[in-house]
């Protein structure tokens, strides 16, 4: 099921580290929407997800960590963004802001899905992922939609590759039950 998403950053981040300002724009164009969509699943808000993603880019821009491979860059970016999202969730929980009413949330999310998920099959899968447990959804989306390895997904979620493997397996079982109930005929695995 791999494919569909292009996470190739080879050359982009190296150019950025060497001082090429335009390289940052390329990196943002490549990763911003995917990252926002990933964070939207956690935050249930497109605008907050955009802020968290922007902060993750800012962190890379300011700290300029030495990342050798594209896998390391993606892991760093997604993990930083995920931490920002978790901080935002904690902040909302602290101020009892449990429900964010966003007027254009549905349309924005739909627009985001359409731009990131290129085919109908991935969009169906993404919708089905929103019905399962967050942990399963996150692992499945990173591995199958974002085309990451178990190790990279483990770095983002602060888990080992074996734990990601287990989460993916359980997630697929839960997803299978849901898809069978909906009789959508979507094959899992």
């Amino acid at each position: 099921m791999k494919g569909g998403l292009d996470l190739n950053v080879k050359g982009g981040y190296d150019c950025f580290l060497s001082g090429d300002e335009d390289a940052l724009g390329e990196l943002v164009i490549k990763h911003n929407k995917k990252l926002v969509l990933y964070l939207t699943g956690m935050l249930k808000s497109v605008s907050l997800a955009e802020d968290a993603a922007a902060d993750a880019f800012v962190e890379i821009l300011v700290k300029k960590p030495r990342l050798k491979t594209e896998s390391e860059f993606c892991a760093y970016l997604y993990r930083s963004a995920r931490n920002n999202a978790i901080d935002e969730l904690r902040r909302r929980k602290r101020i009892n802001e449990s429900c964010i009413e966003e007027k254009d949330y549905a349309s924005d999310k739909q627009s985001l899905e359409n731009s990131v998920l290129s085919n109908e099959r991935d969009r169906q899968l993404y919708k089905a992922l929103s019905l399962i447990k967050d942990e399963y959804r996150e692992a499945l989306s990173l591995v199958y939609l974002w085309d990451m390895s178990y190790e990279a997904a483990g770095k983002i979620m602060k888990k080992s590759a074996k734990q990601i493997n287990n989460l993916v397996y359980r997630g697929k079982q839960a997803l299978k039950v849901i898809l069978e109930k909906e009789e959508c005929g979507y094959e899992v695995g």
């Binding site: 940052l24 943002v28 993603a53 922007a54 880019f57 821009l61």
Partner: peptide
């Protein structure tokens, strides 16, 4: 993307 880049 451009707006997001400006924000960043």
């Amino acid at each position: 993307d451009n707006e997001q880049l400006k924000v960043i």
